[in-house]
Design a binder for these strands. Structure first.
Lengths: 205, 205
DNA sequence: CGATCTTCTGAATTTGGGTTCAACAAGTGC
DNA sequence: GCACTTGTTGAACCCAAATTCAGAAGATCG
């Protein structure tokens, strides 16, 4: 029955199963729920991950990387700083209130206040996203298309902060804040901060 | 042993105990942990709250009201819109990374993605805070001290969003974002949005 | 094809928490 | 100071989940 899977691949499978299980049951997933999601018994999970916490940590780390990579990939190959900025804002928000990647990140927000490890993970994600925006802002500024209202660090932090917060609102199903509304709110700040009209009709495709 | 406490007072005690227990153990607190915090047995807790979820809900609701009331009280009696705005921004952030009220709200953020009830609570808190800012913005605009860059709803939403997000960052102990830094970041947006210098040296008293 | 390693199961065991309830202690009314 | 109500305990019980482990089922290699 057992296929010749490598240790590493098997652990990757479990990480994915743990991610799905967490989406369904929250941060306090049971070992059995992870096992069921993986189609295994709890013993098998324990064989690869003697401590469930380690598995959950890996799963969250993976989810974070996934979210970040998706954003980086969405703007690679695009030269115009204004388009890059608009697209980056769009990919920083959940696509809808069911967005799995963002759901996982929200779940983590609460845990971070109690867990040093998760706090460090989220802090690092925040800073990387800030750096991503800084690159866009600085390049736009250098090309003369952006007239920044303050330091790129300041503006980038506020942009990431706005994304985060509206992500939470969307996940909590705010009746009037959907992806389009949140985009408009953040873009409005981006216009003030860059002095660029940032036309919204640019297709994200 | 039993003191002549009224039903209502006793329930209030339990709500407070549940709040503390949640701060320590997260949204998935055990009945026993609440009981221990209250200095009672699980049976006694069940006597007053047959369903633990009801107790947790009450505790979270109480925490929210507490946070909101504190903010309202902080600006009552202050006439100058600029000062009101500055103080409101200051009270929207946790005082430090140990702030209990904000910690509870962060904890809720994750739960809201899965629980309709908590989602509704947080949404209503968000909207009330937005309304609070709108009143300040509109009155400042009417008095001619603010030159708003957009609708008061838009600006107010962004202000609350920034508060929320930096609250999360502070709770996760971001190394360079403390209360002062977060205030500066939000005030920078507030200046762009109101056209007012919003001097930071005004004492919050 | 036989020896051995890896992976996983199934059953047994332990742990931990929730639920129930008889009993009791402490107030309350009369 | 007797009868009743309220609040609470502690023990019994139940269930779900974690943990452990002997051994089966493949895979791997000689």
């Amino acid at each position: 029955m057992t296929r010749p899977k490598r240790r590493v691949e098997r652990r990757a499978d479990l990480v994915e199963a743990a991610r799905k299980a967490m989406l369904e049951h929250g941060a306090s997933v049971r070992l059995n729920q992870v096992a069921e999601q993986a189609g295994l018994t709890s013993g098998a999970v324990l064989y690869h991950y003697p401590d469930l916490q380690d598995l959950l940590l890996d799963a969250n780390r993976a989810g974070m990387e996934r979210f970040y990579d998706m954003r980086v990939r969405a703007i690679e190959g695009i030269a115009d700083p204004a388009r890059r900025l608009i697209i980056t804002i769009a990919t920083g928000l959940p696509v809808d209130s069911e967005d799995d990647d963002v759901r996982l990140l929200c779940e983590l927000g609460g845990a971070a206040a109690r867990s040093t490890v998760y706090a460090a993970l989220l802090t690092s994600l925040f800073d990387r996203q800030v750096a991503m925006y800084q690159v866009i802002l600085e390049s736009g500024s250098a090309q003369g298309v952006f007239a920044l209202s303050g330091s790129s660090l300041l503006i980038a932090r506020n942009l990431v902060a706005l994304e985060d917060a509206y992500g939470y609102r969307m996940m909590a199903r705010h009746p009037t804040i959907d992806h389009a509304a949140a985009s408009r709110l953040i873009l409005d700040y981006a216009r003030l901060a860059t002095g660029h009209p940032l036309p919204i009709d640019v297709e994200v495709g």
